[in-house]
């Protein structure tokens, strides 16, 4: 198996799916000759041509709306929104349209499409290149929300997303693109949408995360291991549908749980996980569920010190683990 970056996983998935199925096409800003601002689609334009790797006008609602229309007429679109921060103009097309096509037509229409968007901070992206938007979409029945944290999963989950019969929001943490390397299995494989994975076994507390935060939690778990704190780290991988079983099984074992996410604390998706644990795992708990998250300020500042103040870090997570372990 070859060691590759997360973005290579994304690229391989797109390439393989486009080679497998000629209905699959990619659209977005700068995805063509340039290969995307993060080079996720590099090489696809040369291989599949402009009609299947289309540079769109700078209009996010049109990117998603055209994807919806093309899905209604037999294509399988993979739309790229250049930064998750710029997805808001397409909110109506995603929430009122893509998510409801099947439901409102009583199952007589389907809208199989994937919307990819890089999200997350820690890259000096300032207010408008750092946001986490997963909670908006995880709130909407009719959408699946997937966030890979490893190259293997990026490829396997994206391939599953392309083959999924329903709309899938596929958020990729931009800091993981090149930072996170890992082995990608040779040959064809699919990672199913839905199941979470335990990245590190532990007995003292459960740490639930997704995207970059999975890696920060693993670092934090390593740093507190020598202090006798055995932390289990769950990489959610899929927020919608949510793998409640894996979370609750872990909490049953550890009796302590924390959720780590980069989004603002209030109303973030971690709040939902805390509610699931409190509601369905209450009798197993020895401590209140802890949330480590971004502060409730509008967005992440550009200034380095302020950005660090915003971002959950391995050190902040380790501190929270110590507190939780001794509650």
């Amino acid at each position: 198996m070859a060691v590759k970056t997360l973005i290579e996983g994304v690229r391989e998935a797109l390439d393989e799916e486009m080679a497998r199925d000629e209905r699959v096409w990619v659209l977005g800003e700068d995805v063509g000759k340039k290969g995307g601002v993060f080079l996720a689609t590099e090489g696809l334009y040369a291989r599949y041509g402009e009609a299947r790797v289309l540079d769109t006008p700078l209009a996010e609602s049109a990117i998603v709306g055209v994807a919806v229309g093309s899905a209604l007429n037999g294509l399988v679109p993979v739309a790229e929104i250049q930064f998750a921060d710029f997805i808001h103009p397409a909110f109506d097309q995603i929430v009122s349209e893509a998510a409801r096509v099947r439901y409102r037509s009583n199952g007589t229409w389907a809208c199989p499409l994937v919307i990819r968007a890089p999200f997350g901070g820690g890259v000096h992206g300032g207010l408008y290149h750092s946001q986490s938007v997963e909670a908006f979409y995880a709130h909407v029945p009719g959408l699946k929300v997937v966030i890979p944290s490893t190259p293997e999963d990026a490829k396997g989950l994206l391939k599953s997303a392309v083959r999924d019969p329903d709309p899938v929001m596929f958020f990729e943490h931009k800091k993981t693109y090149r930072l996170i390397k890992g082995e990608i299995p040779e040959g064809e494989y699919l990672t199913p949408i839905g199941p979470a994975v335990v990245r590190r076994e532990g007995s003292k507390l459960t740490c639930v995360a997704w995207g970059l935060m999975t890696h920060y939690c693993l670092e934090a778990a390593e740093s507190v291991a020598g202090e006798g704190i055995s932390a289990e780290v769950i990489d959610l991988r899929t927020l919608q549908p949510l793998d409640r079983e894996t979370i609750l099984r872990s909490v049953e074992k550890t009796a302590r749980a924390m959720v780590v996410y980069e989004d603002n604390l209030t109303g973030g998706f971690g709040a939902e996980i805390a509610a699931v644990i409190a509601g369905e795992g209450f009798e197993h708990l020895d401590a209140p569920v802890t949330r480590v998250a971004g502060p409730d300020v509008p967005a992440m500042p550009f200034n380095r010190a302020q950005e660090e103040a915003f971002m959950p870090s391995p050190a902040k997570i380790a501190d929270a683990m110590r507190k939780l372990a001794t509650y």
């Binding site: 709306g65 919806v68 229309g69 209604l72 007429n73 294509l75 009122s96 007589t108 229409w109």
Partner: peptide, 29 residues
């Protein structure tokens, strides 16, 4: 569906872009 009349919402003008996507797909196919 059999008459190629696509499903619509109540939010106006969203379907305009769907028709564009349908036309794009028709040409691609």
């Amino acid at each position: 569906p059999k008459a190629h009349i696509a499903t619509t919402s109540s939010t106006v003008a969203t379907q305009v872009i769907h028709a564009v996507g349908i036309a794009y797909a028709a040409r691609a196919r």
